[in-house]
Amino acid sequence: MRIVKQTSLYVVLTALSLVLFFPMLYAFSASFMSAQEVLLGHFLPSTLHFENYLQAFQDVPLFRFLINSIFISLVVTFGVLAVSSMAAYAFVFLDFKGRKLLFVLFISTMMIPWEASMIPNFVTVQQLGWINRYAGLTIPFFASAFGTFLLRQYFKTIPKEMQEAAQIAGIGHFRFFMNVVLPVSKTSLVTLGIYTFLTTWNAYLWPLLTTTDELVRPLQIGLRQLQSQETVNEWGVVMAAVMVVAVPTLIVLFIGQKHLQKGLTDGALK
């Protein structure tokens, strides 16, 4: 009985995995096909056409886009970690007037969709001269209500006595923050970091608006550019570019899946 149940479970799980992952497998396979094979509707390439990848890197400055995406995502990730952890520290460990009210204000920004501020933000960034600058792609995203909330939830589990012990030992707030709170909260920082990295890497609309040339353009918009440049037949090249876009985040996700799942559910529900 048990074995039957287990086997059928495995069969169902495998079937579902194949269906769900099929688009990516198909894209991966197509990235090695010649234009001819794609048109004939083959599922597997007869020979591996690595030149699709070379072609993709030649058609558009894909390497430049890759570096841009990595740089932008890392800067936003560390920016969010710094700014949110500071705010979360103030909400948990510092006593100040209007703390509750301010926290509600922070949380309320989660209800405001990004689109609601998109038009004036575009104007602001334009006036700051940040169009086609890394600054325009990173700094507006440093403050994160979600990040502050997530970290606050974790910081609250740190015993108050730890702060009091530090106070008595004459350890100042900044030192306590840097040397105790941050190291102790490593796991939730990693969770928030992975989440921020993924969302920044995958951002689409804002980079589309604020990058009109190739210098700071991230991969997503680069892919759009490539896709609109390529003739209909060159699917292999486009799929090769898709792989370049998708594989880094897939790796991040595979490594961080457990973290992310725990961190996000905790953040969402407590």
């Binding site: 990516m24 894209a27 689409y204 997503q220 892919l223 985040t249 996700l253 595979f254």
Partner: peptide, 24 residues
Amino acid sequence: FFRTIFSSSMGISVAASSVVWLFI
């Protein structure tokens, strides 16, 4: 392993998956 596969689309950007589906 299955959990990772099931969650994988979270790691694929809108742009990448749209282009793949465009192909499909």
